[in-house]
Design a protein around this nucleic acid. Structure first.
Length: 112
DNA sequence: CACGTGACATACC
DNA sequence: GGGTATGCCACGT
């Protein structure tokens, strides 16, 4: 894995994303204390436990980052739809799910 | 050391 | 809207 501490941060941060909502790689990186390292998030998600909220992570433009047609992409789409998230052509309208994270709460919880 | 690549982001055309 | 260009960072070649 990339980094034990980072993985833990990612998992914890994801636990703050409510069901039926989504988050971008960039914002996730920011909340993990790793601004500008959105690409690293993808690496982590590949090695993180399957029972975390990995399916709520989308690209900034709302598209599912996984290769369209892949099993993983289908699974992510199904999971999102199951939560009530509308997915059109492998993409969601980020404006409808503007998750306004409580930064302070997260920072305290993660003890930054 | 120099590139190329990637579950990315932003700016610009 | 799509396409290109940069910036970004970890990894492999």
């Amino acid at each position: 894995m990339i980094n034990e501490a980072v993985q833990l941060r990612v998992e914890k941060t994801l636990s703050f994303v409510p069901e039926g909502n989504v988050i971008s790689y960039g914002l996730l990186a920011d909340l993990c204390g790793l601004p500008g390292r959105a690409r690293m998030m993808g690496k982590c998600l590949q090695e993180i436990e399957t029972d975390c909220n990995w399916h709520r992570v989308l690209r900034a433009d709302g598209k599912i980052a996984l290769p369209s047609g892949s099993d993983k992409a289908r699974e992510q789409r199904e999971r999102l739809i199951a939560e009530g998230v509308e997915v059109k052509r492998s993409r969601v309208n980020m404006k409808n799910f503007g998750w306004t994270p409580d930064i302070h709460t997260i920072l305290v919880a993660l003890e930054y």
